[in-house]
Design a protein around this nucleic acid. Sequence first.
DNA 1: GTTTATTTAAACGTAATCTACCTAGATTA
Length: 570
Amino acid sequence: MDKRDVSRLLSEIAVLLELRGDNAFRVRAYENAARVIDALAEDLGVRVEAGTLTELKGIGEAIAGNISEYWRTGAMTFYEGLVDATPPGYLEMIRIPGLGAKKVRALGEALGITSVAALKRAAEKGEIRDLKGFGAQSEKKILKGIALLESGAGRFLAGAIRPIAENLLDSLRARDDVEAAEIGGSLRRWAETVKDVDLLVATRKPAAVTKAFLALAPEATVIASGETKTSVRLASGLAIDLRLVAPSEFPFALHYFTGSVAHNIRIRARAQDRGMSLNEYALSGKRHAAVKTETDLFRVLGLPYIEPELREDRGEIEAAEGEALPRLVREQDMRGILHCHTTASDGKSTLEEMGAAAAARGAEYLGIADHSASARYANGLSEAELKRQEKAIDAWNASSATLRILKGSEVDILPDGTLDYPDSVLERLDFVVASIHTSFAMSDDAMTARIIRALRNKYVSILAHPTGRLLLQREAYRLHLDEVLRVAGEEGVVVEINANPHRLDLDWREAMAARARGVRFAVNPDAHHVSGYDDIRYGIGVARKAWLTPKDVINTLPVEKALAVMRERR
DNA sequence: GTTTATTTAAACGTAATCTACCTAGATTA
């Protein structure tokens, strides 16, 4: 069990309480507590043992007791009681857009509907429209909502959504009546997955902009459209919210709609402490005419500008107060690209194409790391094939004045923790990337031991995609990640932040904790085609969310220094 | 259920939009 399990359970309790019609503030207290636990940087177990949970703001006697019970016994009496008292289908029904706790309960109590399937049948038969508070319109909405839920559209990869949002933004910015436009929400904070897109526009002609926005997505369903807000849903299920504010309101609205909720709560409280009141449109109580940008807004509150990626209430406000915010790594700090594939294994671009495209991007070096021999799934290179590739790289380096290609391999960590090539092969390479692609279903102890054994091999430079997760598709394999990262730090093995938008592995939360323990990182596109280089920005997003500076990321080093880091244990 | 100021009790976020009723409750962000 870890703190995310606890956080999830607290969130579920909040929903169950809401379904029971419990005090709304009690509901919020549990939501709050879930957030506090999720954002906790330290070890939850230590606090449970020490009995210091109530020192956390938002955790009182009752919730602390519940958490302790759950932590020690694996079960929580209070939660079990709630589950027993709630029809199991309610939890699923409340996920239908447009249905909240009150309506779910009304449906259950008046019509005996306690599952999504029963709800669908009743809506199709027109049995819901006669219920007080519902109408024919509601039936339609419920059916649409169920269809959406069934299509699996709930969250989306940020990497799939960002280009759509940026296109819309470009079109909006091109208009004369749009004075400013930005992406807001979790997408602006570079979250790995997003629920929807928030677009924010400053304009004096909201009606005209709304009309133009709707014309940009003619196929979309309009969920709501008013003077200041319009919501549409694309065929994919993705909801896009457009918010329109007057130019003078823009900095306040941008900050507010960027979030996170937890960050906003802190900032709002800070405004109050200073005799001001902050909402999405203005800062009242003191002079604020001078607030033209978010930077101004932070300054009025006595803070330097806080980058959107950091706004998760994970210490950024305290760091800002102490002038201790990190100088976050940027894409333009990157000198080298590591961990890329070619047609020699499962890539789609040749070595020469990959080299030319990397040079065109201004990279100083490119680390090729095709799959190793046993990786049949990916056409892994035999030792002879690897040798041929090394010669091809020598030829490239002899003729290229700008971009140097480094010889590497993405070597499979075999089930027993040994590597797929013998040391005599690894020794010839400039760098070695080790990773897991097979035998995922091990116990956490066995997986941890397997990876640690690989990390102890002195030729291993980088541990790639350390958890094997595929966002929205596949959970991480079971392992003691803390332990693995501790050993990586000790051994000086660089930990990858895989920039592929499906992976983004290591997760930013873990990277944040690992950084504090001195782990160094590589932000790698794992490109299988020249177009894969474009993913680097997503890896940079993760690195920034993890508070990483250029010093924490070895790709910012010149080639000789990067090589020295990757070979320092030999 | 938690925090805070009033130390026993009040405050806890708010605004926009929708839908069913004609002003209000529910939902969402």
